[in-house]
Design a protein around this nucleic acid. Sequence first.
DNA 1: AGCACGCCGACT
DNA 2: GTCGGCGTGCTC
Length: 801
Amino acid sequence: MKIAKVIVDVPTMQTNTPYSYRIPNGLETQLKRGMRVVVPFGNGNRKVEGFVVDIEETDAKQSPQLKEIDRTMDLVPVLNDELIKLSKWLADKTYSFQISCLLTMLPNAMKAKYATYVKAIGPIDDEDISKKFKASDMIPFDSEHFDGPEMGKLAKLRKANKIKVVYKVQNEAKKKQETAVVNQINDFDGTQKQIRKNATAQLNLLEVLQKNPKQPLVQSHLVKDLGISNSAIKSFEKKNWLKKIQVEKYRDPYKHEIKVDQPKKLTKDQEDAVKEINRSIDSHQNDTYLLEGVTGSGKTEVYLQTIQRALDLKETALMLVPEISLTPQMVNRVKNRFGNQVAVIHSGLSTGEKYDEWRRINSGDARVVVGARSAVFAPLDNIGIIILDEEHDTSYKQDDNPRYHTRDVAIWRGKYHHCPVVLGSATPSLESRARAGKGVYKFLRLPKRINQKHLPEVSIVDMTQEEETHDGIFSGELLKAIDQRIDKNEQVVLMLNRRGFSSFLMCRDCGYVLKCPNCDISLTLHMDSHTMKCHYCGFEEPIPKYCPHCHSKNIRYFGTGTEKVEKQLHELLPKARVVRMDVDTTRKKGSHEKILHEFGDHHFDILLGTQMIAKGLDFPNVTLVGVLNADTGLDLPDFRSSERTFDLLTQVSGRAGRADKDGEVIIQTYNPENYVIQLAKHQDYEAFYQKEMQLRHLADYSPYFFTIKVSISSLNEKQAASEAYDVANYLKGSLNNKTIILGPTPRPIARMKRRYYFQIIIKYKRDLKLNQSLKHVLQVSQKEVRKGLRIGIDPEPVSFM
DNA sequence: AGCACGCCGACT
DNA sequence: GTCGGCGTGCTC
């Protein structure tokens, strides 16, 4: 007898294992590994979704009382063997549930929704309730249909067996359907004779059918593009010359004319890199390359040519990029090179569009996938090369469960497919650079910009020495430089480094700072909505006129937001046309592209924005980049804050002077002597790497030590604190004595969304007991978890806040 | 997660 | 004596 092993959608520690089910008659041949099924789980008639991860042959007597699978949700598997295997590995590695991993691999549209209904099964004496059941015997069980007291009555009715609760699993994914026609004619000449000579529409249709006798033709396409009338189609249908069917419709979010983009001639360095990577592709070597190339050195061309090699070998390619650099510029470049076999997945697509792209990959139609983090799970077969561009980018780490790093998944898949993985960056993460240094990764370098262009001139303005700084925002030097560019009809990019920084409201008399009632951070001023907002929980309130503490009127803003800078700019340089780009102005779909497009067309002189402008933009007319506050990210309680700041400054500097004009970069700072600022000025990655490695070595941080963050939170501060101490004590006793355990300490932002957070940092080099000990922690803290405690384990966290 | 079971205090 | 709170264990 065949049984199916199913991972059920019940994300708990105790159910994180496959359950066996009988396969119902008629499904034995159809059911495949990787399909989603609906299964009964627990008592009552609870139904949950699950994934078939295995199908096994068993003795009928060995598994006597198995429940039976209810139904399948798929006709074809939605996950292949590789991804099922990957989900298991990922769950183990990130201390998460396998079901969470399986679900993150699918596009959102395919995630099941559960609906709860109440069903009447006996006579109901309560009038209010029985009235409701007159209309229908199944009523959704929610607050819309039943108020508080009624819910209580329902509970009693259920006890008395008068009603029961029914669960339904609903599949959200709706394939868009459209009508198509399929030819039914065998004898075309004979048919033609039956059509009147002046019935041109029908003759046209016949001709089209004759050319495409086999495949379905989309009706709207026939009517709109080929000028065939609906009535002709109707009369053909009547005569049984064709039949109508419904076919899946693919939305095309990036519908654009595909221009042909030819491979470019390579520089010597590029050519060497391509050759080396191609050798790995050809021999199916699972090598990991670190491709370090300064901005403008032509990394993308290396990617495109190696992808071409994989395609030539009838293999597929996966290219990951940070979300923010998925600009149409970049996407079009890949699409122009490889045409319709490219699928693009990013957050700008609607749920349906993502689903369509996913299906194109799953069916094998798309053979090159370009996408952000989640695209690393693209269901490609036979991968020939995996590329991770800007590999140091922090958006590659997912910061909720499963807390995976895209780089780790990419490398895992590279091993599985025996194909090379290329990590590219101008400023590699220290971890990757160190591995390249040790020979774990193969090191490829593109030290020169193509066309012998030199890097832009970078100068530093010491803000402590500035006399007139206009609220500490603009130095005279920067203002003068901006003014000059505008006179020359050139453009300027200004970046406000907002990391660890925001504008807050403070009372000048008593020093009271307006804080979020749910979180331990100050509220941020938003001029557009005239409110104070919390960036963590979304709390919002009107801007107060009086200090809530001492009722003084002398309450004012501190700090600098993009809005304030914009206002300043208008006052100081009234002629400048400024466009602002930050989370507020890019919230709407497509607004990101719109702003960039308008700036590119020179409708504006100055692009003012936050971090999001640092990457991937390429505007030839930009000759000046100004960084307003280089150092605000430097003092954060995070050992990577120097690395981040260096990356950011280097990236944004690369925005200046990309075409024939030379660029200039002005960095304003209050710490001009800081090594990060100095080395960013010289854009000397190697020196920064050496220096930072020394510091990391002294402090026992990555890459010398691995880190794990355990965070424990609860609405009840005492509960969180005491559990945190218990966990830390347990770990201290069970782990290797070379492993360092820091904490527990309240987190830098100790309270968020009313929860109190404590964290423990584990630093280790090699600890065989670690995985097991942490799993044990999860296991024994279950009791507290029931009482509202949450415990999260984050391997290699990118944030310590 | 969602449910049943069982143990204990409070109440008709 | 039993109703209902909560702590605990189980789900193929």
